[in-house]
Nucleic acid binder design. Structure first.
Lengths: 176, 176
DNA sequence: GCCCGTCCTGTACGGTCGTACAAGATACGA
DNA sequence: TCGTATCTTGTACGACCGTACAGGACGGGC
């Protein structure tokens, strides 16, 4: 009973860790396989396209993601607060939709890959909710700065306790 | 007299642009070549290892980089101000040493590649100058947030005038 | 006992990457 | 005019990626 979908979980855990510290594109199936002591074909067996790894890592986030976009907030600070909490809670996968899967892959051919597209629209949705429909230059800069502060503040402090990171970040981005 | 080292300049310009919007690793020699209407071998002829492209893009930055590390500043706000100014001025190549070349490539084998290593020590130097020698958790988070805000605020607003971006960012990171 | 589905491996394929090298084009000084 | 150095191309190589597929080890139900 050792190896059921237990290996699946171990692969998923290793992938989460590697994605967090190197990024999605920079992590190969062989890397993940080596981390759990398997072959890359074994990893591919459980997660057929590589995308599925990211998808499965992101699926528990989906609900909170939609909530973040759908909910109405009293004011901007309330939304920012929710955003910070979200970023900290899911910091191990934040990098996936801030960098890798949201990357501007040249002129995407009609973009039939719904995976990355969903991520991108989500990030854009966040930005609009932050900056408004048609933000001026100053607002644009400030909002990107906020997102950047959130990402790096969360990704580079993975070893610190969640609540402390959240408290500091919440305070830090108040003025953004 | 059309094609002397003029092509070199055009390649360099195209590379700067592509690196800025996609990142270094995600941009192939073929991409750059296509952007200037050449073959990838032609590009490789002028810039022999691909690293040389990054190196040549970064070389005009080196002086200001060292100045940033070497100079003594009256107080932290003074240093932050210089840092913001630096980031905005070289925003087209900022991505190179915030992401690509500074990436944690697994367990680097004694790191014989001085290129990426220099970038990494520079970024670490910046961080130390920002956070101090042995920062506590809160300071660590705040400083990464500052660097993240700088990077994204600068990279994602490449179409906005430099001075406006600088002013907004300067104001934005005051409290960090 | 046998069979069969699950899990994993080995091997191999097509693709892209950066790079190497021989040959062709082009401009310029002898 | 004829070399000759400079630039560009075509072709090819090895390394890596994700993926496909055939076969072997293992274990539970008939």
């Amino acid at each position: 009973m050792t190896t059921a979908d237990d290996t699946r979980t171990r692969i998923l855990a290793a992938a989460r860790e590697l994605f967090a510290e190197r990024g999605y594109a920079a992590t190969s199936l062989a890397d993940i396989a080596a981390a759990v002591g398997l072959t890359k074909t074994a990893v591919a067996y459980h997660f057929h396209p590589k995308d599925r790894l990211a998808a499965e890592l992101l699926s528990p986030v989906a609900d909170d993601m939609l909530a973040l976009l759908g909910d109405d907030y009293a004011d901007r600070p309330a939304f920012v607060s929710a955003l910070v909490s979200f970023a900290v809670r899911y910091r191990s996968v934040i990098r996936l939709f801030m960098e890798d899967l949201a990357g501007d892959d040249a002129v995407s051919p009609v973009s039939p890959d719904s995976e990355a597209a969903a991520i991108r629209t989500f990030r854009d949705g966040i930005f609009v909710k932050l900056a408004g429909e048609d933000p001026d230059a100053a607002t644009t800069v400030r909002c990107w700065a906020l997102l950047g502060a959130l990402q790096w503040g969360v990704v580079k402090t993975m070893d610190l306790p969640e609540d402390e990171v959240e408290a500091v970040l919440l305070e830090a981005v108040r003025t953004l």
